[in-house]
Amino acid sequence: KISEDVEKLELDPLIKHPLQNRWCLWFFKNDKSKDWADNLRQITSFDTVEDFWAVYNHIQSAGKLASGCDYNLFKDDIKPMWEDERNKTGGRWLASFDKRGGKGIDVDKLWLETVLCLIGEGFDEESDVVNGCVVNVRGKGNKLSVWIGDYKRDEVVLKIGRRFKERLGLPPRFQIAFEAHQDTIVKRGSSAKSRFTI
């Protein structure tokens, strides 16, 4: 009899696999006629593996988004903007795929790998410092980033960067850069001074 219960429990589709965190998916569409914050829309939030896939399977793939659109996936209580309390003192690891370097890069695959890493707590003990991830779809080159809540903790930042790069499967010579959000406000030219590149 025991094995029957075990069998039933294992296969019971109603028992969903809980995620460590509840995550919220946001969509940003660049509409110059509207205020920036109004262009940012919350799609939904989820906290189980099955609910994540139900959402993912029902939204357009990143690669098909119009240039100027973003997907943001953040922990449920964190807004996808550096002004948010938990982003203010943070930064982001940024992978930029410009036209040359971006050839042959499958933005859908890399975005999904990044998302699976976050929702699956793929950063191990560092996972609690990871706030979210963003894919910016841009004609001049797509960008993927992982947002961290505290830019000052060097080893934690570097460990997260290495794991992010490893999960993306990027060749060693492809560099990703870490920028503190506050540095990106005081921009010289188009790019902020990055604190690390690996």
């Binding site: 589709p13 939904t44 593996v49 119009a66």
Partner: peptide, 28 residues
């Protein structure tokens, strides 16, 4: 509640019922 990518990917094909309450954003 820590799952690697291979474990997570096995659930993808079965989760095809549309979630409730998705906003009306035709683009996506």
């Amino acid at each position: 509640k820590q799952y690697d990518r291979t474990f997570l990917l096995q659930f993808q094909p079965d989760c095809t019922s549309k979630p409730q309450g998705l906003p009306d954003i035709p683009d996506i």
